[in-house]
């Protein structure tokens, strides 16, 4: 799925379904890595995670090193039905993660440890919620964003008709 079709929340019904356990496994590793980033205030580790988020956001959540680990080490050991989900919510989560990791990286580079901790803290909270409670940020945000965009569109339409030349 291209990043633009995720970001425009295109409601294309031709969805790409993936193994839903992959992104959740990735969220577990992300939780561990971001915890280590905060504990050690480690810039290299944060840049690593930034790179992982970038792959997940711009390519696919199935193209990250964590997804590779899942495919090679975890999936062969799992039995039973494969739960599937659309690729867009996890990819949206990777985009949000990428933005927060980017903000955290910039803050650390500028030497502002407090701001970096707060920004990385949000990414850590989201990854942990996903890993532990199956919380899906994209799902929660989707309708709110659609409502917000709908309201904006309505306003511009209203302004457009207001600006129509009178006959």
């Amino acid at each position: 799925m291209t990043i633009t079709s995720v970001l425009t929340f295109s409601t294309d019904r031709s969805s790409v379904l993936i193994d839903a356990r992959g992104p959740r496994f990735g969220a577990i590793i992300t939780t561990v890595v971001l915890t280590a980033v905060l504990a050690l205030q480690s810039l290299p580790l944060l840049i690593w995670q930034l790179g992982v988020f970038a792959l997940g956001a711009f390519l696919s959540p199935q193209k990250t090193p964590y997804a590779f680990l899942y495919k090679k080490l975890v999936r062969p050991r799992l039995k039973g039905d494969v739960p599937t989900e659309d690729v867009r919510p996890p990819q949206f989560a990777q985009i949000v993660g990428f933005l927060f990791a980017l903000g955290g990286t910039i803050a650390l580079l500028l030497g502002n440890a407090l701001v970096a901790t707060i920004i990385i803290g949000f990414a850590l909270a989201a990854a942990f919620l996903n890993a532990a409670f199956n919380f899906c940020l994209g799902c929660e945000m989707y309708l709110l964003i659609a409502r917000f965009r709908g309201a904006l569109k309505q306003r511009t339409n209203a302004e457009d008709s207001y600006n129509l030349p009178s006959l």
């Binding site: 850590l124 909270a125 942990f128 532990a132």
Partner: peptide, 19 residues
């Protein structure tokens, strides 16, 4: 360094349980 981490996990767990 550990205090913020504890705080984040406590808040996220509270929210997650409610969710």
């Amino acid at each position: 360094n550990y205090l913020p981490i504890l705080l984040i996990f406590a808040l996220a767990t509270t929210y997650g349980l409610w969710y």
